[in-house]
Computed example of a mutant assay.
Amino acid sequence: MSTLTFTHVGGPTTLVEVDGWRILTDPTFDAPGRTYAFGWGTSSRKTTGPAVAAADVGDVDAVLLTHDHHADNLDDAGRQLLGGAPTILTTVPGARRLGPPAVGLRPWATTTLTHPDRPTLTVTATPCRHGPVGSRPVAGAVIGFDLSWEGQQHGSLWFSGDTVLYGGVRQVAERRRVGTAVLHLGGVRFPVTGPLRYSMTVDDGRELCRTLKPRTVLPVHYEGWSHFVDRPAALERPELAPDPGRTTWAEPGRPVVVEV
C-alpha cells in the first residue's frame, strides 16, 4: 500500500513527503501577533505561530503556492524560504511578481516534477474563487493543486486552495478522481464586507465531499488568524468525508501517514 506523510505546519502550510519527494504548500512562518492588511479595508491578525520553524523544515523539492498576495498564505518568513526552493508553482500573476524560479499555471494547466530516482508527479492547477461573484479583481487570482503519480490506489492528492464553494471547485469532482482532499476552510469574513464569505465553511466542505467522495479529508487553514469566523465549528472536529473516520484534523506539527 502506497502512503504519504502529511504534516500540518499551521494555517495553510503543509509538508507532504511521498516516495522521496518533499513538497511544501503556502509557506507561512512569521511569529503571531502582527496584523496584516489584505487591501480594500480588510486586515487580519495572526494569532498562532507555526508548529514547525522554517529552519526545521529542511530542503524541499517544490513549493505549491496557491497565491502570493495575502500574508496568511505567504508571509515574510515564507518569502525568505522561497529563495531556497528549486521549483515554485503558483498563479500566472503571482509568477510575474515573484520572478524565477516561479512558474505560473492557469486553471487546468498541467506540469510535471521529475527526478531520476522518484515517480514523476503530475501537477494540475484547479480553479478557485477567493470570494463572492465579482470579487476576483479585488481578491486576486488563486489556484488549487491536484497531484497524481504512479502507484496511487485511491486517487489523487488535491489541495483546494482558498476558495468559496462554486462551480469551478465542483468541476474537480467531475474531472479528477480525488483520493485525498486537503481543504482550506475557515469561512473567512471581514467587517467591512459584512456577511460575504471568502473561503469555504465546514458545511461547504461537507457538501463538496458528498460529490467529491475522497477517501481521506485533511482540513487546514481554519485556525491561527482573526478572520476565520467558522473556527468554532472546525474545533468540533466534524466528519467531512462521506465515510466515518476518513476525516483527519491533523494536529499541527505532528506527522500523519495517509494511504494513497
Results as ranks from 00 to 15, higher is better:
175 R>N: 02
163 T>M: 05
196 L>V: 04
148 S>I: 04
227 H>T: 06
209 C>G: 04
154 H>F: 08
214 P>Q: 05
143 I>V: 14
171 Q>C: 07
221 H>L: 03
216 T>V: 08
230 D>V: 03
223 E>A: 15
156 S>E: 11
140 G>Y: 13
182 V>F: 09
214 P>D: 03
202 V>F: 11
139 A>Y: 14
217 V>I: 10
139 A>W: 14
232 P>T: 02
190 F>I: 05
154 H>V: 08
186 G>A: 13
236 E>G: 13
238 P>E: 04
224 G>I: 04
206 R>F: 08
187 G>P: 05
234 A>C: 15
171 Q>I: 02
155 G>K: 02
163 T>N: 00
234 A>G: 01
184 H>L: 10
137 P>G: 09
211 T>Q: 14
207 E>F: 05
218 L>I: 03
211 T>Y: 15
164 V>D: 13
237 R>W: 14
167 G>R: 15
178 V>I: 11
224 G>M: 05
204 D>Q: 05
155 G>F: 07
197 R>M: 00
200 M>A: 00
170 R>D: 12
221 H>T: 03
215 R>P: 00
189 R>N: 11
166 Y>Q: 11
198 Y>E: 06
177 R>K: 14
219 P>S: 03
235 L>I: 07
224 G>E: 04
178 V>M: 06
197 R>N: 02
162 D>L: 13
140 G>F: 10
137 P>F: 11
140 G>T: 07
157 L>N: 02
176 R>Q: 11
167 G>S: 13
143 I>T: 09
180 T>F: 11
183 L>Q: 07
143 I>S: 03
145 F>C: 00
146 D>F: 09
148 S>G: 14
145 F>I: 01
207 E>I: 00
148 S>H: 15
218 L>A: 00
150 E>T: 11
199 S>T: 06
154 H>S: 06
212 L>F: 12
152 Q>K: 06
235 L>H: 12
217 V>A: 04
147 L>H: 09
203 D>A: 07
163 T>H: 08
182 V>A: 06
212 L>T: 00
149 W>D: 01
173 A>Q: 08
193 T>A: 03
161 G>L: 10
169 V>I: 12
199 S>F: 08
172 V>R: 00
188 V>Q: 06
152 Q>F: 03
